[in-house]
Design a binder for these strands. Sequence first.
DNA 1: TCACAATGAACAA
DNA 2: TGTTCCTTGTGAC
Length: 299
Amino acid sequence: MPEGHTVHRVARHFRDEFVGHKVTVISPQGRFSQGAQTLDGLTIVDATAVGKQLFVTFEHGWVLRVHLGIYGAWTFISRARHHSMGAPRASREEGMNESEVADFPPEPVGQVRVRIATDDVVADLRGPTACEVITEEDAQAIRDTLGPDPLVHSPAKGLKRFRERMAGTKTPVALALMNQNIVAGIGNVYRAEILFRHRLDPYAPANSLPDDVIDALWKDWTKLLKDGVKTGVMRTRSDLTAAQRTRSLRNPRIRYYVYKRQGKACRVCHMPVAIAEMASRKLYYCPHCQVEPVGRISA
DNA sequence: TCACAATGAACAA
DNA sequence: TGTTCCTTGTGAC
């Protein structure tokens, strides 16, 4: 699933391959037929990401807003390449052989909500939580509501907004980091990993964190996001050698401190990593490294 | 074959 | 807090 880094990569891909091109837009699945009709034949003028939201701007002021949710994914197919961005689609990413790519454009496979195509490239969208045509004004309203994104807002402005919104809630920091209106782009993986990197108790109220911790969180998220956009991979460990770090691009097993590592030895203290349910999402953390020595009274 | 998980969020109550 | 939606791959039978 697609956390913020993925959506920024998708936006960049749209800028590289689609901006300035007149495109055909169809909905093979049929669930976006009306929107497709509105956009079909128009030229794409821009594509940007804010957090997990993708905004593809067409001429005449129409904006295609896409949110991948948990399952959504874009598949890009050109005459030369084929790759996916979004929820894991392992077998697909490796799939295509030359003869299939040579057959261009290919028949849509599965539930393709929308296909956007130039003469050379096809973008297929499957399983999004949101896919709608809105006006530029609507898009701006959404951007204003969202928390700061380090790749959209300046460091000063982003941090200011992050500070304000964290100070405004006593919700557990683990929930606050997932709240897209407090900070945009962090999902369940980055959330768990960032909390560990700062040895923070997931249950600590957001507004109880000292200023220097808030600042460090923002700086760290900025750094992690940039690396994620560059590599396409959520690499969150700072205790690896350069060689291991490179290996972690391909090997998810060594990629994280705590995410999906419940019961395994903490990379730092070797005590078992814990898992908990928070707002019906899984929360991974190390009780020994992250929770106050006195311990938290579990509900 | 089938239940279920998965990097998410809107909505009702 | 609980329910619902979206899609696909996996792993248990």
